[in-house]
Simulated assay, not measured.
Amino acid sequence: MHQEMSRREKKKLQTKKTISEIALKLFSTKGLEETTIAEIMEKAALGTGTFYNYFETKEAILKYCLAERIDCAKQTCEDIQTSALNATEKLHQILKVISKTHDENRQMIGLYVKFNRNPDKVEQKPPHGARFEEILTSIIIEGQAKNEFRNDIPPEIINEMFSGILKSTLNSNLGFSFMDNISYKHSLLLEGVINKKG
């Protein structure tokens, strides 16, 4: 009986993934507003009413898909956090993971941001945030404990600087790739803007 439930749960999860993948393809070619639930379900070879067993709205698909990818990035960041790398290298690796996640999901993030800028929508929070800040803070504290980072600056301030770098890169209109943009800013934060006279 338990195995049967497990198989049923797997089937439900697979159906949810199928619906979301088909929806994302339609969103990217037609746009979120122009895509109908009936179209999504027709391509999934399922009845329109079945949609509501899995999602409340089309926008909920975006949130689900983004959350999945962010959970995957979060897991990678947690693995980096507990690795043997030094704190500076951990921060660099985490920025690379975030950049890769952003680059691979640029279109979906764009749709999500556009949807959340709609003044009619009450919920304006992204489906992530706090866990990344916890990971960053723990790495900063570790770096301070090992004298890699300055101890006269509160870890919250350093964390806020890194968070600020991420936000400014996400909203940047400069012609740099996300990875180059964030790498330059990361370098500036760690090494400063002044040339060291050797």
Score class of each variant (00 low, 15 high):
residue 15 T to R: 10
residue 17 K to R: 12
residue 18 T to C: 06
residue 19 I to W: 00
residue 19 I to D: 00
residue 20 S to A: 02
residue 21 E to D: 09
residue 22 I to H: 03
residue 23 A to T: 11
residue 23 A to C: 11
residue 24 L to V: 15
residue 27 F to V: 04
residue 28 S to D: 07
residue 29 T to S: 05
residue 30 K to V: 14
residue 30 K to P: 11
residue 32 L to Y: 04
residue 32 L to R: 02
residue 32 L to F: 07
residue 33 E to P: 00
residue 34 E to P: 07
residue 34 E to L: 07
residue 35 T to S: 01
residue 36 T to Y: 14
residue 39 E to T: 05
residue 40 I to Q: 03
residue 41 M to K: 04
residue 42 E to N: 08
residue 43 K to Q: 02
residue 45 A to W: 14
residue 46 L to C: 04
residue 47 G to T: 15
residue 47 G to C: 08
residue 49 G to M: 07
residue 50 T to V: 14
residue 51 F to C: 06
residue 52 Y to C: 10
residue 54 Y to V: 10
residue 54 Y to L: 06
residue 55 F to T: 14
residue 55 F to G: 04
residue 59 E to R: 01
residue 59 E to T: 12
residue 62 L to D: 04
residue 62 L to Q: 01
residue 63 K to L: 13
residue 63 K to R: 14
residue 64 Y to H: 09
residue 67 A to E: 13
residue 67 A to F: 04
residue 68 E to Y: 13
residue 69 R to W: 07
residue 71 D to G: 06
residue 73 A to F: 02
residue 73 A to V: 14
residue 74 K to M: 14
residue 75 Q to S: 11
residue 76 T to S: 06
residue 76 T to R: 09
residue 79 D to W: 13
residue 82 T to D: 12
residue 83 S to E: 12
residue 83 S to W: 13
residue 83 S to D: 15
residue 84 A to M: 09
residue 85 L to D: 09
residue 85 L to T: 08
residue 89 E to A: 08
residue 94 I to H: 03
residue 95 L to S: 05
residue 96 K to E: 13
residue 99 S to I: 12
residue 99 S to P: 11
residue 100 K to P: 10
residue 101 T to L: 03
residue 103 D to V: 08
residue 103 D to Q: 15
residue 104 E to K: 09
residue 105 N to C: 09
